[in-house]
Structure formats: C-alpha cells, structure tokens
C-alpha cells in the first residue's frame, strides 16, 4: 500500500517536471534557430524530454513489481 502511494507520488513528480520542461520559460531557451547534428535544437529538445519522461514513468511503474 505504501509502495503504491510512493509510486503515485513519483508519477506526480514526473508530471510536474514535464510541466516545467515543456510549458515554462525553460522551453523557450531551446527555441532558437540552432542546429545540433543537423536537426533543429527545439525539435531535438522536445523529443529528448518526451523520451526521458516516458522512460521515467516506465522505470517508476516497473520498479513497483
């Protein structure tokens, strides 16, 4: 039971982190006409954050088993 509560709180933390990384002024730091590996920085940033959020959720949920 306490384990489940911990998992929920960790997921909540992921949600808040995601809000911060995607919907705060932080994201506009990457919204510049710069290319990394030939790919626009903002595009690279968004997909990276996205992948990390998914990985974090998978780890948190996976750790419950």
């Amino acid at each position: 039971m306490r384990r489940a509560i911990l998992t929920s709180q960790r997921l909540l933390a992921v949600f808040l982190t995601g809000m911060l990384l995607l919907f705060s002024p932080i994201v506009s730091l990457f919204d510049r006409p710069v290319f990394w590996f030939g790919i626009p920085l903002i595009y690279l940033y968004l997909f990276t954050v996205w992948a990390i959020l998914i990985a974090a959720m998978a780890l948190i949920i996976g750790g419950k088993k």
């Binding site: 995607l22 919907f23 994201v27 506009s28 919204d31 006409p33 290319f35 590996f37 030939g38 790919i39 626009p40 903002i42 595009y43």
Partner: peptide, 29 residues
C-alpha cells in the same frame, strides 16, 4: 534525418516552418 533537414534548410523550408509556431504561443499550452 540530418540530410533531409539540410536540404530543407537550403530550400528555405525549415526556417519558416520552425518559426511558424513558438513554444511561447498560447496554442502550445
């Protein structure tokens, strides 16, 4: 990926597309 991006940039496509929406737009949220 990089090849497409480069060719698109040379054709002037990428810049205008990337400028079309800003993450600061109301739409974004």
């Amino acid at each position: 990926f990089a090849d497409i991006m480069q060719q698109a940039q040379e054709a002037g496509l990428l810049q205008s597309m990337m400028n079309a929406t800003s993450v600061s737009d109301q739409n974004w949220f």
